[in-house]
């Protein structure tokens, strides 16, 4: 590989154009380095070179997200680079978000590696750390040399497609990607040694730091349930007998959407579970035990609910990751809203 070609993205401030008053500056591309790019080029030596610098105002980028992204991607494309660097943004919030967003978009559209740098508390770090390598920097531009010192070698590795080491070794913010490897000692020995350290009050490193789970604001109550259209959703794997879409017994890669129009009762002959995580006998005998179609149909007939939605959505929750489950729900909740569904009863095993 010859000299690595890099396009660098910075904001109006680091380009020396101006501060907040110039934050609506539209994307502009200049040949060669501008501002912090000089420090990078010095570090790269003969290995790499910033061939162009794109400058964009932070407000412009964040207020015209789709347009700005498209414009910048067009500019990057022309230079046919091997790598794209955005920032470092330190603790500048909108700059950080812009760096993360444009880096993510460039990687996705142009299929080239990308790199950014931010202070750990920059909101852009949390938003984009799982999709973009973001080097952990100090909280102000005074940390520029320090940031470049970490970013430059990582940039070269990324551009050359070399294996990227662990976050602490390479200096990037952990992306939350779990990777398997063989340790030197078996797990039981590691556990006993960890306990001994914990008992002695010595420091030890947990192999899995506990995550923070998402929270959402509760939706307002349904005003009149007798008028409401109710949909059924389940993670209990209830499917039409024979599992027509082959939803996996565990670690599902998909969900199913099936009509229950005209169905009053789920029977042993018509429905079963695809779920591999619990004793399936009971659900296979009577799937109403997991998906209460019979009762909701009665309630519909009695006028106690407005309508039972004609389709139910189903997957197996067993070993199915939070991220993929979220993506299922993002897709089908749009359909539910479009179909005029007022409320969902979600059942889980």
């Amino acid at each position: 590989m010859g000299k690595v070609r890099i396009v660098h993205y910075i904001n109006q401030f680091f380009a020396g154009i101006g501060g907040e008053e110039k934050a609506d500056y539209k994307p502009e591309v200049r040949e060669g380095v501008v501002g912090p790019g000089m420090e990078f080029n010095k570090k790269f030596g003969d290995d790499a070179e910033i061939v162009a610098t794109i400058i964009c105002g932070d407000s412009y980028f964040n207020e015209n997200l789709d347009e700005a992204k498209a414009e910048v991607i067009e500019m990057v494309k022309k230079y046919n680079p091997d790598l794209f660097i955005a920032g470092p943004a330190f603790n500048a919030g909108r700059y950080g978000v812009a760096c993360g967003a444009i880096a993510e978009a460039v990687e996705e559209e142009l299929k080239i590696p990308v790199l950014s740098g931010m202070y750990i508390e920059n909101p852009g770090a949390d938003m984009f750390k799982s999709s973009v390598y973001i080097v952990s920097t100090k909280n102000s531009a005074a940390g520029m040399r320090h940031a470049v010192k970490t970013m430059a070698p990582l940039a070269l590795k990324l551009a050359k497609g070399e294996a990227i080491g662990a976050p602490d070794a390479e200096g990037y913010i952990p992306r939350g990607i779990r990777k398997n490897y063989f340790a030197e000692k078996r797990g039981a020995q590691r556990a006993v040694e960890m306990l001994i350290k914990k008992l002695k009050g010595e420091t030890y490193i947990t192999e899995y730091p506990m995550p923070d789970f998402d929270r959402v604001e509760p939706n307002p109550a349904v005003k009149d349930i007798t008028k409401a259209k109710i949909a059924l959703v389940t993670s209990g794997g209830v499917v039409p007998k024979g599992n027509p879409d082959h939803i996996e017994a565990s670690s599902a890669s998909k969900y199913g959407k099936y009509s229950i129009a005209g169905v009053d009762d789920l029977t042993e002959e018509t429905y079963e579970t695809a779920h591999g995580g619990y004793d399936p006998i009971y659900c296979n005998q009577d799937s109403d035990r997991v998906l209460p179609v019979d009762v909701l149909r009665d309630l519909e007939k009695e006028g106690k609910i407005g309508k039972l939605h004609d389709f139910f959505y189903t997957t197996t929750g067993n070993g199915t990751g939070v991220k993929i489950s979220k993506s299922f729900a993002e897709t089908f909740s749009k359909e539910l809203v479009a179909d005029g569904v007022d409320a969902v009863v979600l059942t889980s095993t």
Binding site: K179, R186, G187, R190
Partner: peptide, 14 residues
């Protein structure tokens, strides 16, 4: 991925 720690296999955050 035995949970009695029978193996050396483990995972780490990247």
């Amino acid at each position: 991925t035995n949970e009695l720690g029978f193996n050396k296999l483990t995972a780490k955050g990247f």
